[in-house]
Structure formats: C-alpha cells, structure tokens
Amino acid sequence: MKRITATIAGSLIALAATASFADKLTYYCSAQEDWCQLMARSFEDATGIDVNMTRKSSGETFAQIRAESSNPKGDVWWGGTGDPHLQAAEEGLTMEYISPMRDQLHDWAISQAESAGNKTIGIYSGALGYGFNTDLLAANNLPEPSCWKDLLKPEYKGHVQMANPNSSGTAYTTLASMVQIFGEDDGFEFMKGLHANINQYTKSGSAPIKAAGRGENTIGIVFMHDAVKQAVSGFPIMVVAPCEGTGYEIGSMSIIEGARNLEEAKMFYDWALSVEAQNLALQVNAFQVPSNMGAETSESAPDMSQIKLIDYDFKKYGSSDERKRLLQKWDEEVSTLPQ
C-alpha cells in the first residue's frame, strides 16, 4: 500500500516538475508609482520572472518589513531615501550582498553600501533644495530666494512649507543637513527661524512642492528632482540650489533578510544596477542621478556638478540614536514654538 502511494506521489512530482512553475519575486518599491511599475514590468520582460510589486513610502515599507521580520514576505526593497535602508541594515532586517555590478557604480553608491556592512547599495542620488511657485511669488510681490538663510526673512511668513521630520525622510535630511551646514546650535537656530515662516508641516516629503505646483503654497523645501518633476509636468515651479551648499540623499536598494526567493532577488539586484535598468528613469520623469556611471541623465535634471554638496555623514546621521536625539530636540525646541 505504502509503495503504491509512494509511486503515485513520485509520478505526481514528476508531473509537477514538467509543468514548470514560474519563478516569482516580491518587490517592495518606495519610489514613485509609475517608476515602480516600469521597473517591475521591465524586469519581467528581461527575465520572465513574475513580479509582485507593492508601492509604499520608504517609512511605510520600513515599518512593514519590521512588522514582518519574524516571517518575511518581501524579497527585495528598491528605492526610497537611504536612511530607512541604513536603519534596516542596522537592525539586521536586510542581508549582505556584494553584486558583481559594483565596479560600474559611482563612489557614493559604494560608500553607502560600505557604511551599512554591504547590506544596501545606492541606486540614485538627489540633492536637497527648494522650489517656488513663480506666479504666487509675483502675486505677493516677493523677491526670489536663492539661499537657505533667505527663507528666514519675515516677508516669507506663511509662504514656506516643509514636511514634518518625524514622518518624512526628506525633512529629516533637511534637519540633518542644516545641522551639518551651520553646526548643531546654529542649525537649530535656523530651524527655529524657519518655523516662524512655515505655513504647514506636511506628512509626506514631496507634498510641499506638489502643493506649490497646484498653487496651494509658495515655497516648498524638497529634493530638487521632485521640484524639477513638477516644473516639467507643466506647473509654474522654479528650482533653487541654495548658495550655502546642501545635503543629499542616496536612494537605496536592499535584499530582505530571510527572502523567500533569494535567487530572484539577487537577479533583480544585479539587473537594477545595470545601465539599461537605470535608463528607465528617464521614461517616467525621474530626475535623480543614477548610480551606474554609464547611465544617462536627463537634460532637465539638476546638474550635480553645479551644486555645492556638503560632505553628508550618512553613517552618523542615519543611525537610530542620532536620529532619535535630533528629532526629539526638534520636537521639544522647535515644533512647540508659537508661529
């Protein structure tokens, strides 16, 4: 009896093997929706692997990966600002992987990997700055700002918007950049001065410039590529690279520890670092600077060589402790001030 069942089972297995199951990949994406879709579909076309994509902001994705850590559902996490990736690496939620594609990458992409024990890698970068709505600025007879300190002028009161650093990686990068540009004390003085002019702390990082595009706000502090995107989409937005210099983000990619489809995740990882994959960004108006040295950049993209970039310390300001400390200080000293 047992032998019969065994033979039946055996033949069933053989049958199953010939039926050839499609490989699959669960892909968490924290970039803009159309870019995520394009990456997923293009990878499917390139490899024949079925891709299940979820798009959530980097904070949400990080929360999800953490919640799922005892039973990971995702395989690879692509896109979104680098800090949550570094944090995930720090907490052991992502795994070490050294891609054969590395020698084609810019140095900043590799140093991002090295600061996290090779548990993440840079896929694009973008500098912080701000954009303003030219129509509204003219309607209110305001001068065009060009430096960070310009934003403190009293005439901009009620015209500046940035995200809340507690909920947005972009705004945290702003806070950390100010601390690095002006020093911690003056940096916080800057944030206090800015607070007086802020009309709203939004929840999501790019919301201020989107509001500016629609004419709901005048100046939005965001990553410059987000501002460029609004300008290219037809909104009256002008992009500013502040004169004091500025911080930047490194959009990252990590493989999730305990990935169920590890082989496919590694294939995706290598493919995402290739020239062809990084050139896809141009099709969806993503104006970040790609990490592969051979990839093309758009003409509309902010020219990184013209922007004064500070030497942003990702390791220090990406760590949980420093982050908690700065955010707490901001909460206590800045956000409680009357506006």
Binding site: K56, N166, S167, S168, G169, Q200, Y201, K203, R323, L327
Partner: peptide, 24 residues
C-alpha cells in the same frame, strides 16, 4: 484630515504616522 488637516493633527492620522513615520 490627511488631505485638509494642515497643522491640525487628529488621532487617526497621528496613529498612522506613529506606525509608518520615521520614528516608528
């Protein structure tokens, strides 16, 4: 509240951002 709240924080959105925000 998410779309129109501005600086007017309410519990339901605060819960959301306590979980998904950078402070987790």
């Amino acid at each position: 509240p998410l779309v129109l709240g501005g600086n007017f924080d309410v519990l339901s959105t605060e819960i959301f951002f306590a979980i998904v925000g950078a402070q987790y």
